[in-house]
Design a protein around this nucleic acid. Structure first.
Length: 879
RNA sequence: GGACGGUUAGCUCAGUUGGUUAGAGCAGUUGAUUUACAUUCAACAGGUCGUAGGUUCGAGCCCUACACCGUCCACCA
């Protein structure tokens, strides 16, 4: 195939490799197979909300690169795949879906609705796994997990019950973030702040005993006044101190409320007097508790006002706002309206304005968990890259607030709590245990009802690193593969997920679940906008795979990955072209080498037999290998692939292959060309697994699973300074001659008659006539010419073919310019050295400066002087 | 309001402790073809490194201020 097709066909090859991988299962990890130990990566489980997008493609490519690399390095590499049920998100999607048929979750009923959800999960979960698969992900597919698998649910229950026993889970009536559309509680993280241009309404509250006098309160949410039970002022505010304890009449409602004094009031804001609505504002809630105020809930869970709203009963909260403002205006109680920009919280799933709402929910007490995580972090666990996120992470741990974990939805893990008729909760892993507890309490069997609510999605996700390995059951895998090595994820979920996984890991496994956290950027379109369905700028990874191939997708993605990644469809051409280049270079080598030479190993090579070109490419190869390995270890994949791209395309193809084109008869050349190419294929394999494995197999005349082949070993003895310099000089000169040709304006049509490269009498004469100029441009050594009678197909590369044997050393330098430059540099450095010298002999400085500074300065001075002596030699050699 | 990041060629980005002439890819221009590859090759052109100061023999890199863009956090009604 390689020899026949001059165009790489990704579709055909990728299908073939996938089939083979499915059959051979090379990605299956077994505990204790390798002496090197385990290397584990847990996939951030994609939500079953939808199918994979480009962000996932990036995230999973990063994971795959490292997993494949470590596997080749000899580790028992496990990459655990799976999906997340994504509670509210998925439920919302399915609700929208059934809404098309005029159905709601209530009309369908819990059981039927759950069936629809499971259908959706089955369909999307499969699609996601299939997409991951097509991307070339080397996941251990047999271990695929879902956050609502039966045994995973066991882990969730175990954790809930255990935390309850440890006093870290409690139930309470608090102001929480309430989404009136989803009709569920949200955690603080799920209620996102978004800027909003609202108004600040200034309302007059009249005194009961003197309706001529009033207090002005300012509010951004006038409708909540219906639930006011006090007006608060700062106790130190002279304007109001004499009024504290007086009674006001709440407008529109005509309820009597008192003026109270509380420190929470900011004297500078608004009028300095603030209405207190305990049931609809977290601040007011706290104030009310301090002052034993009444809590008046004015709203139904769906955002419509309830009978406590009196005349406004049944209105939507925003409609009520309008009407109330209108009513106040009519009564002359609205003093003024200021425009006021401030942030309001919105539901992270449906963007509905979140209502602070008083309700009974379950919470996790976070402080003890966060303190442990913080202590671990101070020990460097986990490390976070890029480093700047460390502070963000740490701040969150320090400023932790309790986590509201109950959700009034159906899709998720049912809260493992049962209530008796009096409402006493029994926390247990199953109903039997709960019944037993209830019996113990009441002395007889009593009817129990399970909590209708489910747990926050993240309450299951935070167990992912160990629940996927079978916890709470002890087994060899859990011990062997936990903790994991690296977590690749997006910065958005550092609090939602990363921090909480650390807490759960410490609490239940006694160890932080991963060593490194690598936070990568967001995939955006060419204009820098986030890719989203609603904007219509999303690129479907499957479409790219179909058109350009998965290798091209991966290659281009990584090549473009800086902080955020700006991607447009044409970016994938470079990946496709690269795969094709790889294919064709391999064809060239394939067609010019014998099977034996192709398979030759390092020990078949003897440096004495090798010409300078071979020694050079082997040397460059070693450098590339060292650098690429280092880049991968340091998570600098973009740099790694750049090194490979440059080495393979520029060095190997454009120079090396062109140089050896006439020399393929030499067995050593065949061996070197093959050896280096095979090494390149191995190094590229983590990045572009399909094409590399296909070519590698054809090279070896057998099916090779490249993923289980060993990573190339750095052989330092093949570093060859002499060859590097010699060929480096040759390349300089060749490039120089190309430049000269351009400068002299030698057109290709002229070359037919008088070219250097297809020599004729005329060409030879031209070359000789200009020998002095060329010589002048060459530093160190003499350029000699010998024009061979040889037709050269490609003039550009022909230059290299012709003169390479005759240039021992040197480079292209303008002699005069070079002299001046060197002289300047020497002068400058001598100046520095002298100034340091002076400083070092200054007694005051020596006394004051710490010893390491003095050592450093002295070393710097010596270094400069040494460098200068080298430079002087170089200058002398030019003259 | 707080914290952080970015600003380098038309575009997307490298530039690791300050050190020779700031680099790539794409796009552009000009050329090449009995070719492994036109998904190719070569050459050219394109930069006051956001602005203003400072430290230094020397600054894209260090310091200060400012501007613009972006991200995260945040119970001022």
């Amino acid at each position: 195939m390689l020899e026949i097709n001059s165009r790489y066909n990704p579709k055909e090859v990728e299908e073939k490799r996938l089939k083979l991988w499915d059959k051979m299962k090379p990605f299956h990890a077994t505990a204790k197979k390798s002496p090197k130990g385990a290397f584990t990566i847990m996939i951030p489980p994609p939500n079953v909300t939808g199918v994979l997008h480009m962000g996932h493609a990036l995230n999973n490519t990063l994971q795959d690169i490292l997993t494949r690399y470590k596997r080749m390095k000899g580790f028992d590499a496990l990459w655990m795949p799976g999906t997340d049920h994504a509670g509210i998100a998925t439920q919302n999607v399915v609700e929208k879906q059934i809404a098309k048929d005029g159905l709601t979750r209530d009309s369908l009923g819990r059981e039927k609705f759950m069936e629809r959800l499971w259908e959706w999960k089955k369909q999307n979960g499969d699609t996601i796994i299939n997409q991951l698969h097509k991307l070339g992900s080397s996941c251990d597919w047999d271990r695929t997990r879902f956050t609502m698998d039966d045994n995973y649910s066991e882990a969730v229950k175990e954790v809930f019950v255990e935390l309850y026993k440890r006093g870290l889970i409690y139930q309470g009536n608090y102001i929480i973030n309430w989404c009136t559309r989803c009709e569920t509680a949200l955690s603080d993280e799920e209620a996102e702040h978004k800027d909003n241009n609202g108004n600040l309404w200034h309302i007059k509250y009249l005194f009961k005993d003197n309706p001529e006098e009033f207090v002005v309160v300012a509010t951004t949410r006038p409708e909540t006044m219906l639930g006011d039970t006090a007006v608060a002022v700062n106790p130190a505010d002279e304007r109001y101190t004499h009024l504290v304890g007086k009674t006001l009449i709440l407008p529109l409602v005509n309820r009597e409320i008192k003026i109270i004094a509380d420190d929470m009031v900011d004297r500078e804001f608004g009028s300095g007097a603030v209405k207190v609505t305990p049931a609809h504002d977290p601040n007011d809630f706290a104030t009310a508790r301090r002052h034993n105020l009444e809590f008046i809930n004015i709203m139904h869970p769906n955002g419509l006002l309830n009978k406590n709203a009196g005349a406004f009963d049944g209105l939507d909260r925003f409609e009520a706002r309008k009407r109330i403002v209108q009513a106040l205006k009519e009564k002359g109680l609205l003093l003024k309206i200021d425009s006021h920009a401030h942030a309001i919280r919105r539901c992270y799933r449906c963007d509905t304005v979140v209502e602070p709402y008083l309700s009974k929910q379950w919470f996790v007490k976070m402080k003890p968990l966060a303190d442990k995580a913080h202590a671990a972090f101070k020990m460097g666990k986990p490390r976070i890259q890029p480093k700047r996120w460390e502070k963000v992470y740490e701040n969150w741990l320090v400023d932790i607030r309790d986590w509201c974990i109950s959700r009034q939805i159906w899709w998720g893990h049912r809260i493992p709590v049962w209530y008796d008729t009096e409402g006493n909760p029994f926390v247990a892993k199953n109903e039997e245990e709960a019944k037993a507890q209830a019996k113990a309490k009441h002395g007889k069997d009593v009817p129990l009802k399970q909590d209708p609510d489910v747990l926050d999605t993240w309450f299951s996700s935070w167990l992912w690193p160990f629940a996927t390995l079978g916890w709470p059951k002890e087994n060899g895998d859990l011990k062997y593969f936990y903790p994991t090595a690296t977590l690749f994820t997006a910065p958005e979920i550092i609090f939602f997920w990363v921090a909480r996984m650390v807490m759960a890991g410490i609490e239940f496994m006694g160890e932080v679940p991963f060593e490194d956290v690598v936070l990568h950027g967001t995939v955006r379109d060419a204009k820098g906008r986030k890719m989203s369905k609603s904007l219509g700028n999303a690129i479907d990874p499957l479409e790219i795979i179909e058109e350009y191939g998965a290798d091209a997708l991966r290659f281009s993605m990584i090549l473009n990955s800086g902080q955020d990644i700006y991607i447009s469809k044409d970016k994938f051409e470079i990946g496709r072209n690269f795969a094709n280049k790889l294919w064709n270079a391999s064809r060239l080598v394939m067609m010019n080498t014998s099977p034996e030479n192709r398979k030759a190993d390092w020990n078949a090579l003897h440096v004495i037999d090798l010409d300078i070109t071979s020694r050079w490419i082997l040397s460059r190869y070693q450098v590339a290998l060292t650098e690429v390995s280092k880049a991968i270890e340091q998570y600098r994949y973009s740099e790694g692939i750049n090194i490979l791209y440059d080495f393979f395309w520029s060095t190997y193809c454009d120079w090396y292959l062109e140089m050896i084109k006439g020399k393929f008869a030499d067995p050593a050349t065949q061996q070197v060309a093959s050896l280096v190419l095979r090494g390149v294929l191995k190094m590229l394999h983590p990045f572009v697994p399909f094409v590399t494995e296909e070519i590698y197999s054809q090279f070896k005349d057998q099916e090779i699973i490249l993923t289980t082949e060993p990573w190339p070993v750095v052989e330092d003895e093949w570093r060859d300074k002499e060859a590097d310099m010699a060929v480096g000089a040759l390349i300089d000169i060749t490039t120089g001659i190309r430049n000269i040709r351009a400068q002299w304006n030698i057109k290709p049509q002229d070359e037919v008659d008088c070219s250097f490269f297809a020599p004729s009498e005329k060409g030879l004469a031209l070359l000789k006539a200009n020998a002095d100029i060329i010589k002048k441009l060459v530093r160190l050594g003499t350029l000699s010419f010998e024009i061979k009678e040889r037709s050269v197909k490609n003039a550009a590369s022909g230059i290299a073919g012709e003169i390479r044997y005759f240039i021992p050393l040197g480079g292209l330098i303008d002699l005069d310019k070079e002299k001046i430059r060197l002289q300047e540099l020497i002068t400058q450095q001598e100046k520095t050295a002298s100034s340091i010298d002076a400083r070092l002999s200054n007694e005051g400085f020596v006394k004051k400066a710490p010893p390491d500074v003095i050592d450093k300065e002295r070393a710097r001075m010596d270094d400069l002087r040494a460098k200068n002596s080298d430079l002087k030699k170089a200058l002398a050699s030019l003259v």
